[in-house]
């Protein structure tokens, strides 16, 4: 699966994007965050306040409970500030 980061999340994690093979026990967005934050301090730091983070799955707004699959594009970003 492809994971994208934007705005300050991108800076805190130090990556625009990363490709991972979906671990078997990762079924939801919440599981993915747990997986990522267990592996890396930078992710742990970036995801410390989930209230300040939005997520999309395949370019649609999603939430922590959204189911994810191997071929999905998942993006994490702060609340938007365009306009």
């Amino acid at each position: 699966m492809r994971i994208l980061y934007f705005s300050w999340l991108k800076e805190k994690i130090g990556l625009n994007s990363q490709e991972i093979i979906k671990p078997k026990n990762v079924e939801t967005v919440d599981d993915l965050i747990t997986f990522l934050t267990e592996k890396s301090e930078k992710h742990k730091n970036a995801f410390s306040d989930l209230n300040s983070i939005k997520v999309s799955v395949n370019q649609e707004f999603a939430d922590l409970k959204t189911k994810i699959n191997e071929k999905d594009e998942i993006a994490f970003f702060p609340p938007v500030t365009g306009g």
């Binding site: 705005s7 702060p78 609340p79 938007v80 500030t81």
Partner: peptide, 22 residues
């Protein structure tokens, strides 16, 4: 657009860039 279009603004103030809060 203000709440759903994925844009993020970063402001340059005193030579420093800061992400705008929603």
């Amino acid at each position: 657009l203000k709440t759903q279009a994925p844009f993020w603004k970063s402001e340059e103030i005193n030579n420093q860039n800061k992400w705008v809060l929603s």
